[in-house]
Design a protein around this nucleic acid. Structure first.
Length: 963
RNA sequence: ACCCUCUUAGCCCAACGGAAGAGGCGCUUGUCUUAGAAACAAGUUAGUGUAAGUUCGAGUCUUACAGAGGGUACCA
């Protein structure tokens, strides 16, 4: 009987599904274990071999924990709202719901083939109204909340209204907008509906406010910071620009400190925590006011280096700063206006490309130095960011490299106030050295000067110590169709007398909870309207609250649904709440979360934010959603790039000079692309293009007239028309990069499953190397893994018959087994799955050599291997006569007594250099070992009469004699 | 520019600070086969990217540099 993996795998996949083997119980005496994969977006390309890497690892963990007696929650679902389905809808008219459904079906089919132990009864899809009803519900809770800095948590907005009623807002210690005006209780009582709504809006955690956003004209929507890469949209690569817009936002900044502090409690990689810390960007400094000369205005700056206050030689405002217009002198107005217009029109990408270019303009106005009273010019420059701090900096060119570059460029004075650098060459940014040229700070070390400067600034009432965070509030509205509708409607404002205010946008109200879900309406087209309204404005005129009031037309961003999905898995089908409180208490938080590191600052920050919010409101008991997190490395694809120099189109020859999609153009003005892998062969470790394939390539794409192949760094130019016989094999340059549909380097798991089986795929993906490390996909070693499974099979089947002995195993057999038990257990506990695979190989090699077919050895071995290769394990387990699944069989425990060695051969070394070996009983104490060693003739010979300085003895390791 | 990770045999990768090698691929030679392939058996190869330091002892710890991969990007 041969190992027929196709048949075996299908049978067991069917068995698991029919018997709901992996259904997680909500009540159990067993300890719980929650293992979760990062929510996949079901893209049209399906799974490639990189996706299952993490899923296999988490599945091994889930199966292992079941063997270990845990009640395991291991669910899967889909983050099914998102841009690609919508882009496809715009191009084809196909409703994104249909595309999404197809893609999910394809994902599911691929996932099922790999034999994961998911509890599919708990599947969730973010685009399902039964799911997004609760996403909307959570939004309403956030809308109805404010952040109380005194209690340091979110509270219901009613407590704030009550306070306004009693005392106005002067005593309120809340996280709110900068421009919040103060009012008394009396004023509050006389506010009309609009004014009350506006006042509260400054405090709500989900709020409608003006913000600079990343506007992407091509996608017709705003993007979050983490959805923008290199100044272009992460999905699609379209240019992004800055735009001031009224937007729904989330006051995540209120949680900045807690998000930072919480990191210390998490078992995440240091590098991931570091990225979050950096993204949150806490910095301690001082706010400081500069009086503008001959004006009532003041410029407030934020600085972390108040110690360098005497080194200020100018002040720089961001072009968007509100004072720019007010303080600019008539003589400078034209220049300033031009600069402001120019910097506004520049896209993010241009801005970022010009980071090293210095630009700016003088406003003509001056401030007074707060200590010396000296006149200091005010400049504007776009190296100052409008959104950070106060949008203004005190420039200390001597000790800040950006100010230095600006000063050098515009020939502004550079004053040295901290000794230790050479200011003729560069600024001296280090926080080390003594203060000079600084009046009362002279002679102090930087650290002491900082404290002294802050004290003096506060004493004189010029400013105060302040902590700033780089973390911005998250824009929450998207001008898109395929997302959760925001459950808000607008009522026209009313005057005190009750009459309606004409025009205006109306006052936003949250929908009552019994009207949820607010279902996504049908639209005729998935595009914005002619007047630039989002697609939801196309909904039928009946799509209105009570048939009268407009709903909000923007939808939620991709991260909304994924910010709480781990909770829904605990109680996926609950119609009455987002999840039952008792169940959330039982499942607590995720014990192991596995996914890619690309979510470091997006999803993983938002999910922590929502968790903290829900805890504040009393729905949860946990502060952090994911206790342990592992980033699986990326599986990269291998591509073979070529450059197209010119191409033929409708019988005309074109030279590639530029391209409007801004993609793939290299310096020489050629167009780079990757050859489809179907045309590339692999020989002697090199990628080659054969003559046959070249001919094929010509036929398929006859536009390519003149192609440069990059071959071992030499460029070989081939003309398609003149292709001659000389070239039979052309070595191609290959490079390792992200696996992506657009790069033609995607490998799917399907063909591997077909050819070698899912168990081989699972083992092989683990065998590739450490889980967290990125590695290129190659199938060179896959026959080794597949051979191993065949070898395992042959331990049970000799000459096509199951031959199993119930005899007592030999000492050697038991040693092989228990050594493996020990190693595998250690490997799983530290997520070292690659080494487990080789340990299995060693074990099977040894047992094969011992011709072991003892049940007492092979049964435990099957349990050991079942998390990794569950199908073959189930099959052999059942053939051994078991009628129950192997999934819950007790994981074997290592019996150390089988591993004990009688003796150990010590390497005896002098000064670290091994001279000879000495076999001694393993039980000998270090003192006895020393006696034995020192008594030896050879030792005396090596010592040559000298007395050893030190003798180091590590039992069962080494003996080292220091002379 | 900054931050993180990695660098061990022809290749992929192992080695609680204790004799550098477990495993797989590849390669070589057999056995078996009409042949190919498979299976089986035997064999094969590095002194750990470079330079310094800590240590009785360093692939492992520290520092600097180089290369590769990933992340962030004027945050005052």
């Amino acid at each position: 009987m041969d190992y027929n993996f196709n048949e075996i795998e299908q049978r067991w996949q069917k068995f698991w599904a029919e018997n709901k083997t992996f259904k997680a119980d909500n009540t159990s005496d067993k300890p719980k274990y929650y293992v979760l994969d990062m929510f996949p977006y079901p893209s049209g390309a399906g799974l490639h071999v990189g996706h299952p890497l993490g899923y296999i690892a988490s599945d091994i963990m889930a199966r292992y924990k079941r063997h270990k007696g845990f009640n395991v929650l291991h669910p899967m679902g889909y983050d099914s709202f998102g841009l690609p389905a919508e882009q496809y809808a715009i191009q084809t008219g196909q409703h994104p719901a249909i595309t999404t459904k197809q893609n999910i079906a394809r994902y599911r089919e691929q996932l099922d083939k790999i034999g994961f132990s998911f509890d599919w009864d708990r599947e969730v899809q973010t685009s399902d109204p039964n799911y997004y009803k609760w996403t909307q519900w959570i939004f309403i809770q956030i809308f109805n909340s404010w952040y109380n800095k005194t209690s340091n948590k979110a509270e219901h907005i009613d407590t704030l209204i009550e306070e306004f009623h009693k005392n106005g807002n002067s005593n309120v210690n809340a996280v709110c907008d900068e421009e919040t005006i103060s009012f008394t209780a009396e004023q509050w009582k006389h506010f009309d509906e609009q004014e009350k709504s506006d006042a509260l809006m400054h405090y709500r955690i989900a709020y409608l406010g003006e913000a600079y956003v990343n506007w992407c004209p091509a996608l017709g929507t705003v993007l979050a910071n983490d959805e923008v890469k290199d100044g272009v949209s992460e999905r699609g690569g379209h240019p992004v620009e800055r735009k001031l817009m009224k937007q729904w936002s989330m006051r995540i900044s209120a949680y900045a400190q807690r998000l930072l502090d919480g990191l210390d409690t998490l078992d995440w990689t240091e590098s991931l925590k570091e990225s979050q810390r950096y993204w949150i960007g806490r910095s301690e400094g001082t706010s400081l006011k500069f009086k503008v000369q001959s004006s009532k205005s003041e410029i407030e700056v934020f600085t972390t280096r108040p110690d360098t206050i005497f080194g200020v030689s100018f002040v720089t405002l961001a072009p968007e700063h509100e004072l720019v217009e007010i303080i600019t002198t008539p003589e400078q107005k034209a220049a300033v206006d031009e600069y402001v217009t120019k910097s506004k029109s520049r896209s993010e990408r241009e801005r970022q490309a010009e980071v090293t270019k210095v630009s700016g303009v003088f406003t003509g106005a001056y401030v007074e130095h707060p200590f010396t009273g000296k006149q200091i010019p005010i400049w504007i420059g776009d190296y100052v960011l409008a959104g950070y701090g106060t949008g203004a900096v005190m420039a200390v060119p001597g000790h800040d490299s950006r100010d230095y570059a600006f000063a050098k460029h515009f020939n502004l004075p550079i004053i040295e106030v901290v000794a230790g650098g050479d200011l003729s060459k560069e600024s001296y940014d280090a926080k080390e050295g003594k203060l000079i040229n600084s009046e009362f700070l002279n002679g102090l070390e930087v650290y002491d000067a900082l404290k002294a400067a802050i004290a003096e600034i506060e004493k004189r009432g010029l400013g105060k110590g302040k902590t700033n965070y780089r973390l911005r509030d998250a824009v929450f509205g998207r001008q898109r169709y395929w997302g959760e509708p925001i459950p808000i409607y607008y009522k026209p404002a009313r005057r005190i007398d009750g009459s309606e205010v004409e025009g205006g946008n109306g006052i936003p109200y949250a929908l009552p909870e019994n009207e949820l879900p607010l279902v996504l309406p049908e639209v005729d087209k998935f595009l914005p309207t002619e007047d630039g309204e989002p697609p939801l404005a196309r909904a039928a005129s009946s799509w209105k609250k009570d048939g009268v009031y407009d709903y909000e037309h923007t939808t939620m961003p991709g991260w909304a649904g994924s910010s709480w999905y781990y909770l829904r898995y605990m109680d996926a089908n609950n119609p009455n709440s987002f999840a039952d409180k008792e169940l959330m208490k039982y499942w607590e938080s995720v014990d192991l979360y596995i996914g890619g590191s690309e979510h470091a600052t997006g999803h993983l920050l938002y999910v922590r934010f929502w968790t903290k919010f829900l805890k504040d409101m009393g729905y949860l008991t946990i502060e952090e959603p994911m206790k342990k997190l592992i980033n699986q490395g990326m599986i990269q694809g291998v591509s073979t790039p070529v450059s197209i120099v010119s191409y033929l189109y409708e019988d005309k020859l074109f030279k590639v000079v530029n391209s409007d999609n801004g993609f793939g153009i290299n310096i020489n003005g050629t167009y780079e692309l990757n050859i489809l892998p179907d045309f590339v062969d692999f020989e002697d470790g090199k990628h080659i293009l054969t003559k046959e394939n070249f001919e094929m390539l010509k036929k398929i794409d006859n536009r390519f007239f003149d192609i440069q192949f990059i071959s071992n760094d030499d460029l070989i130019r081939l003309s398609v028309k003149e292709c001659n016989d000389e070239i039979t094999k052309l070595p191609l340059k290959s490079c390792v990069e992200k696996m992506s549909k657009s790069k033609y380097n995607v490998v799917t798991p399907d063909s591997i499953c077909e050819k070698f089986g899912a168990d081989t795929l699972r083992l092989y993906e683990m065998f590739l190397g450490p889980l967290e490390q990125s590695k290129p996909w190659n199938t060179n070693g896959i026959t080794g893994v597949s051979g191993f499974l065949k070898k395992l099979w042959r331990l049970f089947y000799q000459n096509n018959t199951l031959t199993i002995s119930d005899a007592e195993p030999s000492k050697a057999e038991l040693k092989s087994l228990h050594k493996t038990i020990k190693k595998i257990t250690e490997d799983i506990e530290r997520f070292s799955f690659n080494t487990s695979v080789s340990n299995f190989m060693i074990c099977v090699n040894e047992l094969t050599e011992q011709k072991c077919n003892k049940r007492a050895v092979l049964e435990p071995l099957l349990i050991l291997i079942s998390p990794y290769a569950p199908h073959i394990a189930e099959e052999l387990w059942s053939r051994l006569g078991h009628t129950e699944t192997i999934a819950f069989a007790k994981f074997p425990v290592c019996n150390e007594s089988y591993l004990v060695e009688d003796s150990f051969t010590y390497p005896v070394s002098f000064n670290g250099k091994t001279k000879f070996n000495l076999e001694l009983p393993a039980t000998l104490s270090p003192a006895d070992i020393e006696k034995e060693v020192m008594a030896m003739e050879e030792v005396k010979k090596h010592l040559n009469g000298a007395t050893p300085k030190k003798i180091i003895i590590v039992p069962k390791k080494i003996v080292n004699i220091v002379v």
